[in-house]
Nucleic acid binder design. Structure first.
Lengths: 208, 208
DNA sequence: ACTAACTCGTACATAGCTGTTCGAGTTAGT
DNA sequence: ACTAACTCGAACAGCTATGTACGAGTTAGT
């Protein structure tokens, strides 16, 4: 699992605490291309092959293995990258101020495209990485939604007669479903966010 | 694709209009076992192998191929069987009378176990059969939900500012999510139906 | 300009799955 | 009891994927 003699990159995963593992610009660029290709390919189907990914990235298969020792490692990395990008996109958004329902509207508007882009990756990750690992990776982005909903519950806007956890699940699930529906043409890309928002607000809001 | 000389069963799929294809009780029993095993195996993961399924069914691999000429055919058959069983279970239920929200409660209570049992199969079917075929197979059971929701819309109980299609999707999606959550221990099997019902009623009901 | 890092194609070993064939044994039905 | 239906294991061919090894070429950085 760690026997690279002369082939490609000297370091695959940056040692957590250590130096940032200086790589040549060349390599860095290829790694980017590979991750992007992996996102596309896994998006098309959970059973994308390394060959297919390498070809999509415009890179030799050997180079791919040089950077990612195994299929599993690649999938893990691409998921992590996606989550990081999602986190970055959500950092601009202030979820902790203003009325919870308004904040939810903003969150949906932002999450929308992100989820749409990474939705299909989830299936692949679930199949090959296990739901524990996936859930663990999602924790940081998940906490945003959780915090918002909890705040809404405390403010009496969101329902408290169902578990917070379940409301978070509802958020994710319906967002995924809306993205899928838009892909299938059952929802137009323009109306989808509005429809989703409407349904989600109803689902989360306590009635009285 | 149709060259069975002497090996196993003489007929795999019963010709639609023709005779019911009399099979020996022996074969019938094995087919049942195979379908059941396939349900279990595909449930564990979308990439279950024929070998694995045959072993689970307690049957030789050759016998399996004797009854189902290909992996795809088997998957198709097991999906169809599942849908048929779902339809049968739902036949007892009268969805077309009484207040729509009450009917929805009943529908959820019944659908619950069914979806839980067949949920994982869906992923496999989607991957290997394509979403068109799956949607086509689901049409009959889907129509029940659609009819109920449409009735609720007409009665002014359910929301009309979002497409009917989307409400049906919402129903299925959240039901699946609840089943998954119960599997993962994030929802207890006892409270899950109630929680799901609560959320679904909120999501579908028009507020005024 | 020099070197280490990096990439490439080809090829190999291994393994798994699919679908089929053969031949011989077992079982159900009449 | 007889036969057709059915089942079984073993073995084969073809394909595809994974991960490794080699050797030679290209590129980035100093």
């Amino acid at each position: 699992m760690e026997a690279r003699s002369r082939g490609a990159a000297p370091e695959t995963a940056a040692p957590p605490g250590s130096a940032p593992a200086r790589r040549r610009a060349d390599a860095e660029r290829n790694i980017e291309a590979i991750l992007e290709a992996a996102l596309v390919c896994f998006g098309r189907g959970p059973s994308a092959s390394m060959t297919e990914i390498a070809r999509t990235a415009g890179v030799g298969r050997v180079t791919l293995y040089g950077h990612f020792p195994s299929r599993e490692a690649l999938l893990d990395a691409v998921v992590e990258r996606s989550l990081a990008s999602a986190n970055a996109a959500l950092d601009d958004l202030d979820v902790d101020s203003g009325p919870p329902d308004e904040a939810l509207r903003r969150l949906i508007a932002s999450s929308w495209r992100i989820v749409d882009r990474h939705r299909s990756l989830l299936a692949a990750a679930l199949e090959h990485l296990g739901s524990d690992r996936v859930r663990e990776q999602h924790a940081s982005v998940m906490s945003r939604v959780e915090r918002l909903i909890a705040r809404g519950q405390a403010a009496g806007v969101f329902a408290t007669d169902v578990p917070l956890d379940w409301l978070v699940t509802t958020f994710y699930t319906l967002t995924h479903a809306a993205a899928q529906a838009a892909d299938d043409g059952r929802l137009t890309p323009e109306t989808a966010p509005a429809v989703l928002t409407q349904t989600l607000l109803r689902a989360l809001t306590s009635r009285d």
